[in-house]
Amino acid sequence: MDFIVAGFIKAIELLINFDHSTYTAVSATLQASTCSMLISLGAGLPCGFLLGYFNFKWKRPLRTVLDTLLALPTVSVGLLVYAFISSQGPLGQFGLLFTLTGIAIGQTILAFPIVTAITASIVENIDPELKLTLVSLGAGKRNIIMTCLWEVRYGLLAAAVTAYGRVLTEVGISMMVGGNIKYHTRTITTAIALETNKGMFADGIALGIVLIGIAFAVNISLSFLRKQ
C-alpha cells in the first residue's frame, strides 16, 4: 500500500520539479496523439458521414470490416507499421522508424476506424425528419451535410473522445514503432511499462497519474465545449 501512496507523492514531485524525463514523455505522448487525432478526425468524419448517409452496393461489407477494425490489437498495428517503415520495408527510405511520426502513423491507423465507424453509426441514426426539415427549409446539399454534422455534434465529440482514449493509452505501437527511446520517443505508456519492469512502481504510478490527469483534462475541456 505504501508504494501507491509513494507513487502519488512522487507524481507531485515530478511535476512540481519539472522532471525532464517526465515532461519529455508527456510531450511525446501529446505530440503523437494530437497529430494522429487530427488526421483521424480529418479523414474519419467525412468518410463516416459518407458511409452512414449514402446507400451503395458495398456498404454492409465495408461496415463489417470497419467494425472488426474497432478491436484492432495495437501490437498488430505496431507490427504492420514496423514492417512497412523498417529499413527493409517499402517505406524504409523515409526514416520513420523510432520517430514520433512513425508512432503517429500507427496511432492514426488505430483511431481512424473508431472515428469512421462511430460517425457512420451516428449519421445512420439521424432522425429522417431532419433531412426532410432541411429540404423543406430550402437547404442545398452542402447545407444538409453541414447541418446534419452539426446536429450530431455531441455524438461526434463522443467518437473523438473514444478514439483519443484508445490512442492515448496504447502501448503496442509506441513500443514497437517508437522504440521507447528516452527523451525522444518514450511516451507515458511505454515509460510506465519500463518503470514497472524495473521495479520502480512509484515512478510508474506517478506517470499513470499524469496520464489519467491528461485524459481527465481532455474530457473536462470537451464537456466545457459541449456546455458552450
Binding site: L132, T133, V135, G138
Partner: peptide, 22 residues
C-alpha cells in the same frame, strides 16, 4: 426535380411531428 434551386426556396412542408434543430 428534388433539390432544384428553382423550387427549394419556394416550397415548404410542415410535417405532423416536425424536427426542431438542436
Amino acid at each position: 426535380v428534388p433539390l432544384s434551386p428553382r423550387v427549394r426556396s419556394r416550397v415548404t412542408l410542415l410535417t405532423q411531428k416536425p424536427y426542431l434543430l438542436k
